[in-house]
Structures are given as C-alpha cells and as structure tokens.
Amino acid sequence: MSTSSPERGALQNKSALLVGVGGLGCPAALALVEAGVGRLVLCDDDRVEESNLHRQILFSEADVGHDKLVAAERALYRAGARPGSIELVHSRLLPENARALVRGVDVVLEGADNFATKFLCADACFLEQRSVVHGAAVRLCATVLCVAAIGAPCYRCLFEDLPTGASPNCAEAGVLGPVVGFAGALMADRALSVLLGDNSVYGALVSYDAKADRARELQLLARAHCALCSSERSIDRITYDRYTAPSCAA
C-alpha cells in the first residue's frame, strides 16, 4: 500500500491503537507515522531491555531501563509525527480496559507476546466492531492476519481458543530482528488498507518463513460454529476467566 497525497489527507483523520510496542509494534508505529495517520495510541507497560534492541527499532542503548512508551513517543516525534498525535496508555490490554481502548480508534494492530492478550483483543474488537490486524513472530516465522469489524473470519475462526497443555508454540523462544521487521511493516500495510477502505485484505493470513524466504497468503474461511463471530456465538462480553491461560512470550 503506497499512499498518495489525497490518501495522506484522509489518513490525517484516522487513528490506530497499537497493542504492544515491541518487535512488531515498533516498525508498525513508524510506518503509520510516516504514512500520515493522524493519531496513534500506544499501549504497553514494559521498560526497554538491552535484549530488545536488535529488533525493537524505536529504541537505542540510551533507552535501556526506561519506560518503553516514553522512548517510543520520543522516537516517533523525531520521525515526524505531528505534535500531540501520540497517546500513551501505560498498561497492558486488560479485560477492564480493552473495549474502551479499541472503541476509541479506527483500527487496531495487535502485536502482543501472549495468547491471552491476543484473544482478548480479538474479542474486544469484534464486540466493538473494530477491524484488527493480528501479528506474531517466533524465530524465523511470522504470521499476519487482518480481520474485519464483523469478523467472518476472525482470530477465533483460525484458532478457537487459548492453547492449553502441550502447546507447539512455547518451546523455543527467540525472534530474528528482520522477521519482526517484515511482519510489523506488513501489519502497518494492512492497517493502512483498512483505514483507506480496501476490503480485500480481510481474512487474509500471511505466513512468512525467513529460512525459505517465502511468504504465503491464505484466504481464511469463517468457522461455522465460531464462538465469536458466527450466528451461534457465545462470547458477548469480556470476562476475566476467558483469558487465564499461561502466557508465551516467544
């Protein structure tokens, strides 16, 4: 998605929430600022660690130990964000704040490092009728899924519920910097498409394998009995007990 002058004008009136300002959120935020998105809301509660620096491109050694959002805000203003266009939410996305946060923006980019937040974000976005771009990366692979405000398909159409027991994803932590760079940039690209009214990106799951240097796009189908977005849905509110599986900061 490239942005022309009229599109940049349209984007000035648009807003985006970034859930997680890490390896995915940093390049995504930078791309959204450069594209001219008018308001960015950054949601995170971490501090910058030295181990973040190889992939979280908004931060430098001088930021280590400091509040991640303050450092990100500073970097984004340096990159040209319009004064006052960055809002900081010093918290994780939580059951008590999720719906209000997603309701306040036009599109959500979810780059969380744990499944509980991913499902919470998916549920909150559907309940508040907001489009969301989910991103994830582990070692050499990454996935990006763009979900329409009405779902069908949604994240729960792809993965029904939080992993329990022998999860295949928690085994080997670690992420290669360029992999999250690719995925974060693609998340921003999909978010810009949403903001500019391009419906073709909905339901598209991109899987990127850095070892094979191959990206593949699959068009998902809605799950007939999806608990979130089907006519038989059972999730009609956010409750704590639904998001209690162990986290996996891969």
Binding site: A136, A142, N169, S207, R216, R223
Partner: peptide, 29 residues
C-alpha cells in the same frame, strides 16, 4: 491452500504431489 476443516478433515485424501502446511498459533515479537 485449503484448510482441511473445509475438506474432509483428517480423512482428506492426498496425492503424492500435495504439500501439507501446518500453521500453529504463535505469540511473540
């Protein structure tokens, strides 16, 4: 490119030239 949920599930027949992809949920970044 077909999800086996929308084919015949685990009973989905295969040809020798087929490519199977496994897509697990991942969290991280």
């Amino acid at each position: 490119d077909e999800d086996i949920r929308f084919l015949d599930g685990l009973a989905t027949p295969l040809k020798s030239t087929d490519e199977i992809s496994i897509v697990p949920a991942i969290a991280g970044g």
